[in-house]
Design a protein around this nucleic acid. Structure first.
Lengths: 167, 167
DNA sequence: CTAGTTGTTCGGATCGTTCCGAACAACTAG
DNA sequence: CTAGTTGTTCGGAACGATCCGAACAACTAG
């Protein structure tokens, strides 16, 4: 049995391994677990015990990577934050860019290595494998979306038009 | 047009983003590009310009993660190093453990979050999605292995029995 | 215009990681 | 046994990343 604080701390650790900062990961944990739909800066600040400035940079980081959305309730004074509807899909796609990066790395290697057949074969294998993954992984995501709900794709599209959901 | 040193440096950067240390990544780049099949410590040391101790820990790290194999030629005095036959497959599988980790994180979240339906639905979605990926991704790897060469699996098995390849 | 609130930016301090050089242990050749 | 070589371990230094508190900018209400 674990507490909510332990869960948030774990989220910080896990997302840190994914390349985010520790506090950014803890924010995600907070938004994941907290039932409060209207998370704002003071609330996060109290829950996480971090400085206002750290929240600012972490939230900007999360917003720019598309994982967290910022919105302001009508006639509200302060920003509120919520997870993007397809947080996990976005996280997957972000990770997926590594495939392209390594494909390019392999191509760069082929351009600088000599004619040694062993090295060339290995680099070609590397290039083809990462290209294969970059090509097939999105299909896996689509497959998941369809399995989850036949009209999941449509739902994602409608939420992507910029109209905020919450009241 | 790039040089071999730039390629090695890029490999260091890319593999560092994957969680390895910088020098470990540069070692991989070296083993990828260098036509010299018999890479040893002095050679790597000269090529990378790092201390002997740094090589030791990085090579141990790479060896324990299964990416690099250490062998000693018959009647040789020093160890030699080569990439594992299925370096990339191993890298993929290592990355894949993140899926399980996040599945467990979602389950932990479900155990600590209340009955709020929104939070629960989101955590269940997270759990199911990562579980789906953890289940489907290995199939993708198998698919690749079969597409590349029908008896690739057999080849991998024979090289895994401990018999060193190089003379 | 003034006062109060919200979000951002900046300099300094702190923390963790990595690296290097030196001492150490293990092994081989002669 | 001795000398030389190879690989490992350890302490200190350097680097990068992150975080905090304070000053700053932007905005709103009255």
């Amino acid at each position: 049995m674990a507490t909510i604080d332990e869960f948030i701390e774990n989220a910080g650790l896990y997302y840190e391994r994914l390349g985010l900062s520790r506090t950014a990961g803890r924010i995600i944990g907070c938004l994941l677990a907290d039932t409060d739909q209207a998370a704002d800066a003071p609330g996060l600040r109290e829950r996480l015990g971090v400085a206002k400035s750290s929240l600012s940079v972490a939230l900007r980081q999360l917003e720019q990577s598309g994982l967290v959305e910022r919105y302001r309730p009508t006639r509200g004074r302060r920003d509120h934050y919520r997870l993007a509807d397809d947080v996990f899909g976005r996280a997957f796609r972000a990770k997926m860019t590594e495939f392209d990066a390594f494909t390019e790395l392999a191509e760069q290697g082929l351009s600088v290595v000599g004619q040694d057949p062993v090295a060339r074969a290995r680099l070609e294998l590397m290039r083809d494998m990462y290209a294969f993954m970059a090509r097939e992984f999105p299909k896996l995501l689509d497959e998941w979306e369809q399995q989850r709900s036949p009209d999941a794709a449509r739902a994602v599209d409608t939420t992507a038009d910029g109209s905020g959901k919450p009241a």
